[in-house]
Design a protein around this nucleic acid. Sequence first.
DNA 1: GCGACTTTGTGCATGTGTTCACAAGCAGCT
DNA 2: AGCTGCTTGTGAACACATGCACAAAGTCGC
Lengths: 254, 254
Amino acid sequence: MPAVTDGVGFDPTVPAARDRARAIPEAAVARLAVYLRVLSGMQEQGVGSVSSEELAAAAGVNSAKLRKDLSYIGSYGTRGVGYEVEVLIDQIERILGLTRRHSVAVVGIGNLGHALANYGGFPGRGFPVTALFDVDADLIGIPVGGLPVNHIDDIARVCTEREVSIGVIATPPAAAQAVCDRLVEGGVECILNFAPVVLQVPDTVEVRKVDLAVELQILSFHVARRADGAAPTPPQVNGVAPVLDRGMDGVVVS
Amino acid sequence: MPAVTDGVGFDPTVPAARDRARAIPEAAVARLAVYLRVLSGMQEQGVGSVSSEELAAAAGVNSAKLRKDLSYIGSYGTRGVGYEVEVLIDQIERILGLTRRHSVAVVGIGNLGHALANYGGFPGRGFPVTALFDVDADLIGIPVGGLPVNHIDDIARVCTEREVSIGVIATPPAAAQAVCDRLVEGGVECILNFAPVVLQVPDTVEVRKVDLAVELQILSFHVARRADGAAPTPPQVNGVAPVLDRGMDGVVVS
DNA sequence: GCGACTTTGTGCATGTGTTCACAAGCAGCT
DNA sequence: AGCTGCTTGTGAACACATGCACAAAGTCGC
């Protein structure tokens, strides 16, 4: 399975003819990222190979689902044996496009922005933060996490110069859309939005949103529902978390 | 349509018979929280009523989906007219259990923990942060966002005392599971986990996970896929964001 | 080299979520 | 009252995701 040709190339004749097979389900992509993290941990501990059963347990998913997910990227397992950790890591990184470095810009250096900027090149390398922006004149020029803060008026220019491919919006809601527009203008292809607003973007740009209030409210819903009639839950013991999977509705709830 | 009788009215004989009808799709719950935010904004601007079309546009979703989502909580619209903003807000709050206050505890007062603690009672009231914890002796007693930091050894006791219902884990991955266990011991029902680990919990506890690295990797995947063959995307103009919906795979991507 | 055992990869059935498209229902005008 | 126009609420079709269960395909021991 060379080149992920895909995309939306469709057949004009058939009504809703879906493109070729090569489409990896959005939900599977999210899980591949999780598998990658688990695998990296295993590799550090010197584990050379894993079975789908072991890996699934460690990632908190069903083993059949895991195998199906892996099958989307090719056949790298050995029947009767399992998967080689290193091979799997390489392949997942390839599919996720982690062989390339993706330069990240963080806009809005408040509490959250600080946290993001100091995240240290972002977990598990591959996502160097190369630009910071804010409106506050007192912050301009001050280095945060080793990088000086620029003014948001320079977003487009700086992002173009530094070839930023991912923009992170950590501004107050009111400023988010304007910031978003500048990022798009600066050639940013993907945006991770922490501001509680629905961004309007050209559809060449991908947006993912992380909304803490929404997360809390979803949890609140479950508390409420539980308080209701439901309750009969037997004294069940520990097991893998009954994780809510957002599917792709935003954050990855494992 | 009185009482949401619902659903999958099924046969009690069937093995894994699910509880009563009350099942609102997980994905719909996440969106209801979004609608609520949009509606609040409208109310502040003095808007008295909205049509499903308007609200859907503002929330970045399909209007049919919006109507179906709202139908899960009852019939509060008027045909030919639309919905009354206030009524809808009340009903969504009721369903999400926001009439009750949910006390929140934040564990791990690093960069992210600071940001969370200072979030100010958390967006749109209803989620007061009532306890902070960390291991670092230098932090104990220091007030962050007006609240003193306690030692993680006291998690269970303090959470029980203050009736914390939601625990937020913002610790390094290595500490997450231990912290989680203490929270559960302290009677916490729901956990929002920012640490990149799969938590094991009794299935009476609900876990949602927000993983920044995973979010970035998903975006990376889309960049990579795009760089491939796909490209033909016509010069399409602005429109509502082609938001990736995590469904419920975690974060709410709108 | 062969058989027994193990684990992958996947076809199929099930379940969940999304979208279409339209009947039902209400407001307002005549 | 009846008619017109608009918007809701939902049945039914579709698309997507999950999980079972098993054949295919490899390893290991003899």
